[in-house]
């Protein structure tokens, strides 16, 4: 049929095709419009930023100042962001006394505040499990209890990043956005993570959190003492995790969750120092690690008194 009026048919067809293509392109541009809004919030500097371990000190400095500026613009808070390196001769370890933990979640609250977590979701790197005495079956654990604690017949097990010596989350990352530092802390370069969440699937301890949206936190609540690899406000669409508060612990201070603990169930220190509290616990208490059979070699130990 088209063959019969071929001369005019082709030109008409070409016009129709051209119009359709233009229409299609316009529709596509319209459909993708939200991306334009989003791209305004992401700077070119951030887009081309190199991996954490490829930045020299000058570049790192530029990045830190840019991040401080962006925090001021987006959240209205004056913050200081540092890049804090591991201490020499230190490998961090943590132990938790299940006999005296009362499950008050003060540790989670401290984490929430210290690490500038998203406020509405009550996000924190610590989950406190309420378990039945006489059983360690996580199946029956409750994490959202609100009754007064300690409740009769229950005991409490806070779980956070175990800072594994053999971390499955690090192995699976396709872009090396997460790695283990010399002091044993597994960190995330929030500006390098592509948000595939493979690490979240790989972690056996539910230690990782994803920023499903831009974190919400008011300027007055922001902890201004921040570090690049730990508690600076995370961008949307990246994974974050507990760093044993490296912005505190790498300058010798105790982690926020430990200071908040009202019973002293938490013990923190340098595993390489034979006189440290953590070493005393490992040598004098019968400690165990969570899911030892997975071979992750946690540096987070649990123990009971007696």
């Amino acid at each position: 049929m088209e063959a019969e009026n071929k001369p005019t048919g082709i030109s008409r067809r070409t016009v129709v095709k051209g119009a359709a293509a233009t229409l299609g392109a316009a529709a596509f541009a319209r459909a993708m419009a939200p991306i334009m809004n989003w791209s305004e919030t992401t700077s070119l500097d951030e887009f081309v930023q190199k991996h954490y371990r490829e930045l020299n000190s000058q570049e790192m400095n530029d990045v830190l100042r840019r991040l401080e500026r962006e925090t001021k613009e987006n959240y209205g808070a004056d913050v200081t962001i540092n890049d804090i390196k591991p201490m020499q001769g230190v490998v961090f370890g943590y132990a938790l006394n299940l006999s005296i933990c009362i499950g008050c979640r003060k540790c989670a609250e401290a984490c929430h505040k210290e690490n500038n977590h998203d406020r509405p979701s009550h996000n924190a790197y610590i989950r406190v499990l309420e378990l039945d005495q006489g059983s360690m079956n996580l199946e029956n654990a409750n994490t959202t209890y609100t009754h007064p604690v300690p409740a009769p017949g229950k005991y409490y097990m806070p779980v956070q990043c175990q800072q594994c010596e053999n971390p499955p989350c690090v192995n699976v990352c396709p872009v090396e956005a997460t790695w283990q530092e010399a002091d044993g802390i597994t960190v995330v370069d929030y500006n390098w993570c592509i948000g595939c969440r493979y690490c979240e699937a790989a972690c056996p301890y539910h230690a990782r959190r994803f920023n499903w949206r831009k974190p919400e936190i008011s300027a007055t609540e922001i902890n201004p003492n921040q570090a690049y690899l730990s508690n600076r406000i995370r961008p949307q669409g990246v994974v974050e995790k507990c760093t044993f508060c490296l912005h505190r612990t790498r300058v010798g201070r105790l982690p926020a969750c430990l200071e908040a603990c009202p019973t002293g169930a938490r013990v923190f220190g340098n595993l390489l120092d034979p006189n440290s509290e953590i070493r005393w616990v490992l040598e004098n208490k019968r400690v165990f690690v969570l899911k030892e059979e997975l071979g992750t070699k946690p540096r987070f130990f649990y123990f009971f008194d007696v």
Binding site: C104, R105, H112, R127, V128, T143, T146, P148, P262
Partner: peptide, 8 residues
């Protein structure tokens, strides 16, 4: 006993 804080 205390009332726990920060319910997930």
């Amino acid at each position: 006993p205390v009332v726990p804080v920060l319910v997930p």
